[in-house]
Design a protein around this nucleic acid. Sequence first.
DNA 1: TTACTACATAACCAGATAGTATATTAGTGT
DNA 2: ACACTAATATACTATCTGGTTATGTAGTAA
Lengths: 114, 114
Amino acid sequence: MPEYRKENLSDEAFEMLGERFRALGEPMRLRLIYALMDGEKTVSELVEETGGLQANISKHLKLLLDAGVVGRRKQGLHAYYRISDPTIFELCDLMCGSIQDQLESNLGRFSRSS
Amino acid sequence: MPEYRKENLSDEAFEMLGERFRALGEPMRLRLIYALMDGEKTVSELVEETGGLQANISKHLKLLLDAGVVGRRKQGLHAYYRISDPTIFELCDLMCGSIQDQLESNLGRFSRSS
DNA sequence: TTACTACATAACCAGATAGTATATTAGTGT
DNA sequence: ACACTAATATACTATCTGGTTATGTAGTAA
């Protein structure tokens, strides 16, 4: 007997969940999210902070934008990106914890502490 | 001023996090996880429940196994798979909630209720 | 042994995706 | 207006990945 209950999930729900998780399934995108934990930043700032190429960073940011993970505003020449879904922090922290528990190695954490 | 603190994360940590999230970034794999919420099941049972082809299911199960999401035991002709990392439930539930909040549409949930 | 069942692996193809090169857009100065 | 530069986005390409078919392997039973 299961110790939890399941509700039915639609095909669409599985697709959407998959898209969201897939958006987080890339080291460079995780770096971007990590960099954005300080708050809103421009593409150039993110390029510098992550060490990636500008075109690549822009592409990953677009994917994150489409997935609803980040938001964007434009002002003059700059595009400012920010994390639009705070759940991301909890997701990353949970996942870090899970990995740590399994490996007992010190990875550090994506975490809010305030 | 940020409202959270960051610790440094290594390249390896970003890679591992990415691999874990990527494992969840596929609708069929989410279906398998969902099916395994009832408890341990054989490949055949999972094939029937998800409606996928056996070879494809086996492939996804191997990926989930390698990613540390599920466990496996063999008995006679059957291979029994189970969720080995309970954090998965929380991750999926958080993600479902996040999607619901953003879309205000009814997706149902991956959730533990007991 | 032979036959059958359950599962895994290999080979292939089509579509997706990460990274790089190129283009576009917006501002500045003349 | 025009050229020039800075900031960002899009197009191209090689690789990766999911799905499928075919084949292999191991346990079971006659």
